[in-house]
Design a protein around this nucleic acid. Structure first.
Lengths: 203, 203
DNA sequence: CATTGCTATATGTCCTCACATATACTTGTA
DNA sequence: TACAAGTATATGTGAGGACATATAGCAATG
């Protein structure tokens, strides 16, 4: 499981509590390539401890709830290395926006374009965030920092490409709408408008 | 749910059985942006019928098992339109390969590069497949065909970008390895090798 | 003094998805 | 004639993940 190994990876870098993993690691470091909610992290830690891949000890704190600090064990480190050196099959793409686009045939032209424009805004926001992090977090030449930088560059590269695709798609659709419009002779050359739109001169 | 609406979308285009949805739609048409196994499709159809978004009738066949053909109902069409015109939040990126890369710090240089090269092969295969489909399936100017083409172009664009990223990453790592090598003076300038590698002159 | 917010862990529940298996009849092949 | 492969639907089960809620003490704010 990916989450299990992500946790093992973070614990290799530093012994931590579940709370730290959530707030420091999954909400920040790994936020651009993997998310996990708190319940999931705690239950995964339990499972990892049951399998002796991590161990925990409670550290009492005055004026704070106790912390359960998890440490990577030797078997845990071995499992992480084994997993990290295994070639895993590429999981299939899975994008709900493409379902939406694929079946947007009945939408009005304006609604369809709005959908794409909103998608672009969301992607641009993601791009801005990852670029900002690239500038701030990627100083240094250690192997760890380089690998971390590469994951951030992945997000920026792929998101940039997605934005380009949105722009091209908007252009394609606008062109199709243009060609669909009545020409000077008032003849509808191509039926691009959705079927729910008026089709001829009726109404 | 995305799968529900994908099924509604396919049924709007053509009344079909669960078997058809699996073999004709999800294994081909939608394979580049959403996959679904057979059990999932059948159970989703049951749920959709219980909510009256689709209706079914059994068509007896000689020399074949009966077919349960599903048709989109009016409420189903309305639900599809409603969903398709709603702006949905962008789901977070989620890529197991980036976890692997992020925690590949202990791997040998060669293993790390092999991982990236294998990933590149898998991506190239995906790119070839989607390009081929773009050439074959995207003839025509109807709105449906255009939208379908756009989804295929998404896959090619984003996959192409991912391949470029892999290539850049391989270069970055090779450069780092190069800089890590002992210089003419035999001095290790930078610790790029993983910690499990020999660190100094010990043994 | 009351409320909100932060630190910290834990549990319940539901949904989606994946994998395996069962059934049943037919056609094509060895 | 036996076996595999195709057509077609259905069920069992478990993993992974999302959301909500509970508990509990302390700090800061109004």
């Amino acid at each position: 499981m990916s989450l299990e190994h992500a946790i093992l990876g973070f614990l290799r870098e530093q012994a931590m509590s579940g709370y730290d993993l959530k707030t420091l690691c999954f909400d920040h470091d790994a936020a651009h390539f993997w998310t996990a909610d708190q319940a999931q992290i705690y239950r995964t830690l339990e499972r990892l401890e049951a399998r002796a891949l991590v161990s925990s000890k409670v550290r009492r704190q005055r004026s704070r709830p106790d912390r359960k600090v998890y440490t990577l064990t030797q078997p845990g480190a071995e499992e992480l290395d084994r997993w990290a050196s295994t070639i895993h099959p590429l999981p299939p793409l899975r994008d709900p926006f493409l379902i939406q686009l694929r079946f947007a045939g009945e939408l009005s032209d304006e609604l369809l374009l709005d959908l794409l424009r909103s998608h672009r805004v969301a992607l641009q926001d993601r791009l801005d965030t990852s670029r900002e992090r690239l500038g701030v977090e990627s100083r240094g030449q250690s192997r760890e920092v380089l690998l971390h930088r590469l994951t951030l560059e992945y997000t920026t590269t792929v998101t940039r490409a997605a934005i380009d695709w949105v722009d091209d798609s908007i252009s394609s659709i606008e062109t199709a709408i243009e060609q669909d419009r009545p020409t000077a002779a008032g003849v509808q050359r191509r039926l691009f408008s959705p079927r729910t739109q008026p089709k001829g001169s009726a109404s």
